[in-house]
Design a protein around this nucleic acid. Structure first.
Lengths: 145, 145
DNA sequence: CACATACCGGACAAATTTGTCCGGTAATAA
DNA sequence: TTATTACCGGACAAATTTGTCCGGTATGTG
């Protein structure tokens, strides 16, 4: 569904978000990779991308690490994360790969996929990192097995 | 959403299906690749896969080519095609990449993605190649731009 | 049989994604 | 200022996906 990079990015953000929201605590890369069960160096690349897009905050030096500001917790949506890492493909591309699929010249599945696509967009647009971090906090969601 | 291989496979099957249903006509690889705008040699690989899985029929020699039997037109679903080429990942894997995501230990998006996933499965299970070929026949769907 | 057609199968190559390594830079503290 | 910590950035490597090439095999025709 999403790329590995995107999966790691989302899981990392939720973990960072939970630590920021619950303890006001910054977390380091080692910590993050361990908690979401992802390759450390590769996860670093993904997080750098998110920092550049201002969906995540980083602080260098001792006691540094990654954190989400209260505003980021409240406003950053899954949709923004997916767009930042994977681009718009999954959110708007044609299911059969036609470059210009639309009502004007639809693929045979166009109108069947449309409602599903719409629901996916709506879902990603609705959920913020803060809300998802809340689920983890309440034990209603997990970031690794 | 689906791999390129899967996109080509679906488009090719629909085209072959339309030719089989409307004209009882076998189509060659060159023809198919031109009509669905896909790389010929790569498409050949995908079609061989579908033939091995008996979702498609091929005939060698002069006047040979690919065709769909009436039974294949009636019974082969999109779901079978996706499973044959891409495997079950998109149809049942966790959206955040957890290897064992389930009600027992769900990811934070588990219950949100479930209905969408279910609809996608239902959609793919419902549509047969024959039905989609019908749409193309009626000018309600296109396989290239 | 000889020949032409068209799918089959394996090897190979390019492109993309995934993952690693290491020196550089900023920040903090002694 | 010096040392330490931890993110940053670029180069590199492995794995997967995408795409190509070519000889082999089966089939139909004369």
């Amino acid at each position: 569904m999403f790329s590995k990079a995107c999966e790691y990015g989302i899981r990392a953000l939720i973990y960072i978000g939970q630590q920021s929201a619950d303890f006001g605590r910054r977390v380091g890369l080692r910590d993050i990779a361990a908690e979401i069960d992802s390759p450390e160096a590769f996860t670093a690349k993904v997080l750098q991308q998110l920092v550049r897009q201002q969906l995540l905050t980083s602080v260098k030096g001792p006691a540094g690490g990654f954190e989400l500001t209260p505003e980021q917790l409240r406003t950053v949506t899954l949709r923004q994360v997916v767009l930042a890492i994977d681009g718009p493909g999954m959110l708007q591309g044609c299911a059969l790969g036609l470059p210009q699929c639309s009502a004007k010249q639809p693929c045979p599945m166009h109108y069947q996929f449309l409602p599903i696509r719409d629901q996916l967009n709506e879902l990603l647009r609705t959920y913020t990192i803060g809300e998802l971090a809340g689920k983890v906090h309440e034990g209603l969601g997990f970031l690794k097995q």
